[in-house]
């Protein structure tokens, strides 16, 4: 074996040792970080007996809220606390469940994200709000669905047939996929985001829509009875028998109606 080939083999060996130790160090670091994260996170799961048309109220500070229906007469609350400093004590009253993270941490500033998942009976009324974070609510047919994001976060309401729906955020999209029930009231408001409403073709409602950007698309729900005000910034009119009331306001985004 020549001196040159010996030097080359030594160099190759040294390079392999260096890369192997780098990978091991990286894996150790990643493992340590993962362990720290999982130690900092806290998971809470609780179940509460409930009647079919229970009312659930949740006031969060920051984090995602997901509400789903399930075929049980009970409420299951799952929460992931990103910081162990956050406190909350769910309170069960005669007509429902109240979770007030805001009230339970008042004056403590930002206590980190708390991500909630709630499983409730299909006829439940749900009133959820957060200062920041997305809200997803699906498959509910109770009296009220209210989703309020004070600042930014998308709101997705899917499979909703509640008689009163309120969805409001400042920055973020709002998507409603459901039905307007007779005599129901529906309010959607966004500061900057796209509001999309997907409803059956035979829906009947009275619409008042204000959209200063003039990005308004009513699609096949448009008819000649609609009044256009303020040079295309506001629309008023009836679709079908106008049996429910729909108010949509978007300061800097678009409003779109889609046929299901």
């Amino acid at each position: 074996m020549s001196t040159g080939s010996l030097i080359a083999r030594y160099g190759f060996f040294r390079a392999r040792v260096f890369s192997t130790s780098t990978v091991i160090a990286f894996l150790c670091l990643a493992g340590a970080l993962g362990a720290t994260t999982s130690l900092a996170q806290q998971h809470v799961t609780k179940r509460y007996p409930a009647r079919k048309n229970v009312r659930v109220e949740l006031k969060n500070i920051s984090g995602t809220i997901t509400v789903e229906s399930w075929a049980r007469d009970e409420i299951k609350l799952s929460a992931t606390l990103e910081s162990p400093t956050a406190n909350f004590t769910p309170r069960q009253s005669g007509d429902g469940l109240v979770v007030d993270v805001m009230g339970d941490n008042r004056g403590r500033g930002d206590v980190g994200d708390v991500n909630f998942k709630l499983q409730v009976p299909p006829d439940s009324s749900v009133d959820v709000e957060t200062r920041r974070g997305d809200i997803n609510i699906s498959n509910l047919r109770g009296g009220l669905v209210r989703a309020h994001v004070s600042s930014e976060g998308d709101i997705t309401l899917a499979g909703i047939t509640a008689s009163q729906v309120i969805a409001q955020n400042t920055i973020g999209d709002i998507f409603f996929d459901g039905e307007f029930s007779r005599g129901g009231t529906y309010q959607f408001q966004s500061g900057q985001g796209n509001i999309t409403i997907r409803i059956p073709a035979d829906s009947g409602f009275r619409l008042v829509a204000a959209v200063p950007t003039k990005k308004f698309a009513l699609g096949q729900f448009w008819n000649n009875g609609f009044k256009t005000l303020g040079d295309g910034r506001k629309y008023m009119g009836d679709v079908g028998d106008g049996r429910s009331s729909v108010t949509v306001t978007n300061f800097r985004g678009s409003i779109t109606f889609l046929r299901r």
């Binding site: 920051s62 403590r108 500033g109 930002d110 980190g112 200062r131 920041r132 004070s150 600042s151 930014e152 400042t170 920055i171 500061g191 900057q192 200063p212 300061f251 800097r252």
Partner: peptide
Amino acid sequence: ARWSPQMRETFDRNMRVIDQA
């Protein structure tokens, strides 16, 4: 002062949107 930097940014960003409206 008690908020996280992220929360402060969020608030300011949203306030700008409303002020623009």
